[in-house]
Simulated assay, not measured.
Amino acid sequence: MISHLDHLVLTTAREAACVDFYTRVLGMELETFIGGTPPVQRRAFRFGHQKINLHVQGAEFEPKAHLPVPGALDLCFIVTVPLETVIERLRAQEWPIEQGPVLRTGARGQIRSVYVRDPDFNLIELSQPV
């Protein structure tokens, strides 16, 4: 019945720092679009065939999660470059690696991962299939 994930929603308490992390550090594209009822201007991070819609804490769009809070996500992204390149990029951007590289199990098998935190302390896993 379910084919794939289209988008998810991230709630931030630090909008500018959040945009900086997902665009500068992770290389996602910032998109502005009109959505919702009534239609309003919104923002999202686009990557591949997915996106992360952005909500600012206290100014979320309806409908929303029951308890939208910053720092409650644990996300794993599959990277398109070698994990060593990801590590070099993180170091060049002066973004601390919390753990890794380590071996983990992803949705399609074994992966090598590094873990970082975004500005709201969400856990971000960056992974390469083994």
Rank of each mutant, 00 (worst) to 15 (best):
I2V: 13
I2P: 05
I2S: 14
H4W: 09
H4F: 10
D6K: 03
H7F: 14
H7K: 09
T11P: 02
A13Q: 09
A13D: 09
E15Y: 10
E15F: 07
A16P: 02
C18Q: 02
C18H: 06
F21R: 01
T23E: 06
T23G: 04
T23Y: 00
V25I: 11
L26H: 10
G27C: 06
G27A: 01
L30Y: 14
L30S: 07
E31W: 13
T32Q: 14
I34K: 00
G35M: 00
G35C: 04
G36R: 00
T37C: 08
P38N: 09
R42P: 02
A44Y: 01
R46Y: 03
F47W: 09
G48D: 09
G48Y: 11
Q50S: 13
Q50K: 02
K51H: 14
K51G: 09
I52C: 08
L54A: 03
H55P: 07
H55I: 03
V56Q: 09
A59W: 06
A59Y: 01
F61Y: 13
K64I: 00
A65Y: 10
H66E: 14
H66N: 13
V69L: 13
P70E: 05
P70S: 05
P70W: 01
G71Q: 06
D74H: 13
D74K: 08
L75R: 06
C76S: 15
F77M: 07
E84D: 15
V86Y: 01
I87K: 03
R89M: 08
R89S: 12
R89W: 00
L90Y: 08
A92F: 00
Q93D: 00
E94D: 14
P96Q: 00
P96G: 10
E98Y: 08
E98R: 15
Q99I: 11
Q99D: 15
Q99M: 12
G100F: 04
G100P: 03
L103T: 15
R104A: 14
T105N: 00
G106K: 04
R108Y: 13
R112D: 06
S113F: 05
S113R: 05
S113H: 13
V114H: 08
Y115D: 05
V116F: 05
R117L: 12
P119C: 05
D120H: 01
Q128C: 07
V130A: 11
